[in-house]
Amino acid sequence: ADVSTDHRESQAWTSEAQAKQRWGPFKADDYWKKISQAVEGTRGLILTFSGEPINAVFHSTSGGQTASAREVWGFDYPYLQSVACQWDQKSPRYQETKEWALSDLESRLGADAGVMAAAQNGSSAIAQIIDHTASGRVAKVRVGNKTFTGAELREKLELRSTDFSVDVKGDKMIFHTTGYGHGVGLCQYGANGLAKEGRDFRQILTYYYTGVALKNVHGT
């Protein structure tokens, strides 16, 4: 496998010693048992679509609706479709408000965006959402006189998701985000909520990944 030190390109990993340092010895023992049971209980199982292993992408918090791969990355996976998700509302990342000074936006977005010029001219529409995706996330947004995709603005302004609204108050632009992550595939906090309602891993996985099947690669 190709290996990268960039945590965004693969899954982060925590050792048992690190877990004890993070959670304390008593919680860590309890959590480690659950982790071990989950690993042993799913050993050898993979998710497939039409007999082939899937790209099982995931994110932290969907904010009420997951996104399809097509609306986020522009190419379609039949099993990465948008589904409703009302089980992630207790996520600590469900909502966030982030403020940017207009002067800082100018340096982040480029002088050609004309943010300060628009503010000095008294424009009441320094920022305006132009279009939304099928799952309700921002597809296009204009800031100053420049148009960005929701994904571009999220990256440039370090927003938690592309599900956001925007207000301008004085010399600040305020973003209200819902959810955390790209929104495609399995919602981690949603899966946790479903598990607390008694759903097992098969029910959870086949809900977030449309039309998939579980296959035992060990052949038993």
Results as ranks from 00 to 15, higher is better:
A213W: 01
A125P: 00
Y180R: 08
C85N: 12
D163Q: 13
R160K: 15
Q21F: 08
D88W: 03
G211I: 07
Q120S: 11
V184K: 03
I174E: 01
A127S: 11
Y77K: 15
A125I: 05
G211F: 06
T97R: 14
G185R: 01
L214I: 11
D2E: 13
Y189N: 04
H176K: 14
I46F: 09
A69G: 11
Q95F: 09
D131E: 15
I46S: 03
R160L: 07
T162P: 00
V115F: 03
D30M: 12
P78D: 09
Q95S: 08
I54G: 00
C187P: 00
I46L: 11
H218N: 14
T133L: 09
G74H: 08
Q18E: 15
A84N: 13
A127L: 03
R8T: 14
T5F: 10
S10Y: 13
G110Y: 02
T210E: 08
F75H: 15
G44V: 07
A118F: 06
I130C: 06
A67I: 02
R8F: 10
A125S: 14
Y31L: 14
V3G: 11
S165M: 09
D112Q: 14
H182F: 09
A117F: 06
L105E: 00
T42P: 02
L205T: 02
R202C: 02
T220G: 12
K146Q: 13
S103D: 14
T61P: 04
P92E: 06
